[in-house]
Design a protein around this nucleic acid. Structure first.
Length: 667
DNA sequence: GGGGGTAAGTTTTTT
DNA sequence: ACTTACCCCC
């Protein structure tokens, strides 16, 4: 045995021996489609990263032959970091990223094969909505559909892999949405005209590429000897097609997920992907990770009792080797303000037990619920943060600044052009813009080119044209500087020279001051990316939250936002009919998904769970009488302490009343 | 082109 | 109640 082999096997034993036997199976098993059902807190990321390291160390695959897809950039970064810890530098070369970033990487290479040029721009949700609105305006005459609704419907079609051509041949698929369908066609044409792809396209067009170009597909099939997928329960139909094309038999496919944590059906995720894995990939093996390393036994018992009420699930039961643990607590309140005050006081108590604020989270169903907690916390001087509030890169001023950067880096980026043409005011308003649009459509060119030809054609320049000429000169002037100046300097210069900064300074409102601060923050952030194009590429696929301080603060967060996180103590509030389960979800027949949401919430806690509800809640414009959530009735109450005079009957009877009220046409 | 008034909606959110 | 978006009029 050589020295290298010896050290290799030592290393391998090292990182395998710290796994439990099921985790080891999930790491080692090969040659068969593999589904790892990883319950909450069972070491899912650990299995994924160890599996990659194992494949590399055993030389089953080179780094470039491994494809690992995640959902969020955060998850991808975490996985990259931990893989590097296990496997060293070679981890850098693994094709690891979000589905979207992997898609864009593939498309940048082969875009010309499907009628795009490789420097296509990527539209975020904001750009997309603007474009759709604008097209809706041009196509008016038909019944007006709210653009947000239209964008939503179009995105769902894209999630399902349906191009306008597909829909054309299957009219039943757009039944009731004729207007949106015609808008979709126009939108799709516009995307091609602008050489732009929206987020959905990054997946959809990759699938199109694979389907239309056998040689490319063949190449990638050969290259990716191992494919790993994180959060498989959240994949949509296109992502499934994508995987099925790359791994038709699934022999080299390892999907990790938890059907009990599927909470994103409303944005196109198909829980059936995970439920039908065995049917989709014959001879599949399923490994269940059920040993939980996060929560106490009572918390797991309560979570299990609830999720068992779901009928369509693959089924698994979390257990823990750890003994003891406080019971889950349940507390009812009169008015919702009391609920917030109780939680605030209870946090003070937890502090005395040695918990930090950062160990504590309030989990809400909808962000509207956060306000009363803010008030209660401010009153007591408790530090808190609202997680995932407004994202930094979605703020108006940041989007504007980005548009300036984009138009200077890529003058033909028409959406950036349009966004800032009249910001600050240059007397080039909507009428003028309409003219440019018409021209760009006629000549199949960008707005920038349209603006150029408009200037050339006109002999007697109006005031508007004068302004336009200045604007174009401005763009070209800065365009020439992008290779010589740092991106931070470019942004600084752009904001001053364009008059954007002056515009905000003259506003003299507290808001405008905040925006100026945000812009300064943005300039500082940009210093990390000396080269402008590199930054723009990075930013198009990332939506970072506002730079959050590391300070010790209580987290107030939605149940959706909490997925993947863990806290010592968790408060689950607003467990009332009308709040949770949410009525809209009930309308859509999604009670099971609401229940999974409750399950996600419960399993975030390591040691303490407190569930609360209020009998009176101020909602919209008035005090509303609320009944305890039907989910309370589904909990294993033997593991629950009822606080403050709350009796079992109240939960049982009112929850029953709630359920019957909902189905009773007389009430 | 811009400002003001009205109407409508108000779950969850990543890429 | 409150925000936000859109439309119309100045």
């Amino acid at each position: 045995m050589t020295l290298a082999a010896e050290s290799l096997s030592f290393h391998e034993g090292d990182f395998l021996s710290s796994l439990n036997s099921e985790q080891q199976r999930a790491v080692i098993m090969q040659g068969t489609p593999l589904l790892v059902l990883a319950g909450a807190g069972t070491g899912k990321t650990r299995v994924l990263t160890t599996r990659i390291a194992y494949l590399l160390n055993k030389a089953y695959a080179g780094p470039q032959e491994i494809l690992a897809a995640t959902f969020s950039n955060k998850a991808a970064a975490e996985m990259r970091r931990r893989t590097r810890d296990l496997a060293g530098e070679q981890a850098e070369f693994v094709w690891l990223g979000t589905f979207h970033s992997l898609g864009s990487r593939i498309l940048r290479r082969h875009a010309s094969l499907i009628g795009y040029s490789p420097d296509f721009t990527i539209l975020n949700a904001d750009d997309q909505l603007r474009l759709i609105k604008q097209i809706a305006k041009e196509n008016k005459g038909r019944r007006i559909v709210p653009s947000t609704l239209a964008a939503n419907v179009i995105n769902r079609w894209k999630d399902r892999g349906l191009t306008p051509v597909d829909l054309e041949f299957a009219p039943y698929l757009y039944e009731g949405y004729q207007d949106v369908f015609s808008l979709y066609k126009a939108y799709d044409a516009a995307l091609h005209r602008f050489n732009a792809m929206d987020f959905g396209d990054l997946l959809l067009q990759t699938v199109r590429l694979f389907e239309t170009t056998a040689s490319v597909l063949e190449r990638f099939r050969k290259q990716f000897r191992h494919i790993l997928v994180d959060e498989y329960q959240d994949t949509n139909a296109v992502q499934y097609q994508w995987l099925k094309l790359l791994a038709p038999t699934g022999e080299n496919l390892c999907c990790v997920g938890d059907d009990d944590q599927a909470i994103y059906s409303w944005r196109g995720a198909e829980i059936d992907n995970i439920l039908h894995f065995e049917r989709d990939f014959p001879h599949a093996q399923i490994v269940r990770l059920e040993q939980n390393y996060r929560s106490t036994a009572p918390i797991l018992a309560v979570a299990s009792s609830l999720i068992q009420k779901n009928t369509t699930r693959l089924g698994k039961t979390l257990w823990t080797g750890a003994e003891g643990g406080a019971p889950v607590r349940l507390k009812g309140h009169g008015r919702s303000r009391e609920e917030a005050q109780f939680i605030a006081q209870d946090i003070l108590r937890l502090r005395q037990q040695g918990l930090a604020f950062a160990d504590i989270a309030i989990l809400v169903r909808a962000s509207a619920q956060t306000r009363e907690f803010e008030e209660a916390f401010i009153a007591l001087g408790l530090p808190y943060r609202i997680v995932g509030n407004i994202r930094f890169y979605e703020r108006t001023e940041i989007r504007d600044a980005l548009a300036y950067l984009r138009i200077v880096a890529m003058p033909h980026d028409s959406l950036a052009f349009e966004r800032i043409l009249n910001v600050p005011k240059r007397g080039l308003g909507k009428v003028f813009l309409q003219k440019l649009h018409t021209l760009s459509q006629e000549q199949h060119c960008s707005l920038f080119e349209a603006a150029h030809s408009l200037i050339k054609e006109t002999t007697r320049p109006s005031a508007a044209l004068q302004q336009l000429r200045l604007f174009l000169d401005f763009i070209l002037c800065w365009h020439q500087k992008i290779d010589t100046l740092s991106s931070a300097d470019i942004l600084k210069g752009l904001l001053s020279a364009s008059g954007y900064r002056t515009m905000l300074q003259e506003e003299k409102t507290p808001e405008a001051a905040g925006r100026l601060e945000n812009l300064d923050e943005f300039v500082r952030a940009l210093a990390e990316f000396p080269e402008l194009k590199g930054f723009l590429d990075h930013i198009s696929l990332v939506s970072e939250s506002a730079p959050s301080s590391q300070a010790d603060m209580i987290s107030i967060i939605t149940l959706h936002g909490a997925k993947g996180l863990e806290f010592e103590a968790v408060f689950l509030c607003g467990w009332e009919e009308g709040i949770f389960p949410h009525p809209r979800a009930l309308d859509e027949g999604n009670i099971d998904e609401e229940r999974r949401l409750a399950y996600v919430g419960l399993t975030r806690a390591k040691r303490f769970v407190t569930i609360t509800f209020a009998r009176q809640r101020y909602l919209y414009n008035q005090w509303q009488t609320a009944l305890p959530s039907r989910f309370l009735r589904e909990l294993d109450l033997s593991q629950v302490t009822l606080l403050g005079g709350l009796v079992r009957e109240e939960i049982e009877t009112t929850a029953l009343a709630a359920a019957s009220q909902f189905h009773n046409p007389l009430s």
